[in-house]
């Protein structure tokens, strides 16, 4: 039997959740034995090359590229997991949700206290750049998400227990200490 295939991505996140995946320490050796990685920053595969069993996503959606990426994951993964606070509720990037986009952009590129060289008020406007969304969206408000692993970052044991449960088809072990929102 071939190994289950896992893909991961960081959308509007800080890569902290990916660091927490690595934080399973030496169990990473077992993980490599147990699964095959496809599209993921861990192995630097940029596009899906086959259907995956599990997709793990950190970060919410703050721009059009995040949305395209998320849709590709939903299409190519049988099971999709929201990993961490940003994926689940937008997280710190969503602090901008109460502020109009125009105001955010002006603050970042023209009026902020650290901006001194943009006298002409030039705003980034290249076709290559993804469009910023009106607000930062939790993943499950855009596609169907199967499982949620909260935390900032989610504890390594939570990620490990979830993967073990998924791969072995057993019930997930959820001790009190591993479900945290910070």
């Amino acid at each position: 039997m071939s190994k289950p295939v896992v893909a991961t991505a960081s959308l509007a996140g800080c890569f902290g959740c990916h660091m927490s995946i690595l934080d399973i320490d030496d169990r990473i050796l077992q993980l490599v034995e147990l699964v095959e990685f496809n599209k993921s920053p861990i192995d630097d595969i940029k596009t899906f090359t086959k259907m995956c069993d599990v997709g793990i996503i950190e970060g919410g959606c703050c721009n059009s590229e995040n949305v395209e990426n998320l849709l590709a994951f939903r299409k190519n993964c049988k099971i999709l997991i929201s990993l961490g606070e940003c994926a689940i509720m937008g997280g710190l990037p969503a602090l901008r949700n109460g502020i109009p986009v125009e105001e955010c952009i002006n603050e970042a590129y023209c009026d902020g206290p650290t901006v001194s060289l943009n006298k002409e008020r030039i705003l980034p406007n290249d076709d290559e750049l993804p469009m910023i969304l009106d607000k930062v969206y939790p993943l499950h408000e855009i596609v169907k998400i199967d499982y949620y692993l909260p935390g900032c970052p989610p504890r390594a044991d939570l990620i490990w227990n979830a993967l073990v449960a998924l791969l072995t088809g057993s019930k997930m072990d959820l001790p009190y200490e591993v479900v945290k929102f910070d």
Binding site: S82, M89, A94, P150, F181
Partner: peptide
């Protein structure tokens, strides 16, 4: 939230301006 193992709220986030 911890006691009830709330992994995600079932309602949409309202992000009210406060």
């Amino acid at each position: 939230g911890y006691k009830y193992q709330m992994m995600v709220p079932r309602f949409p986030y309202s992000f009210p301006p406060k």
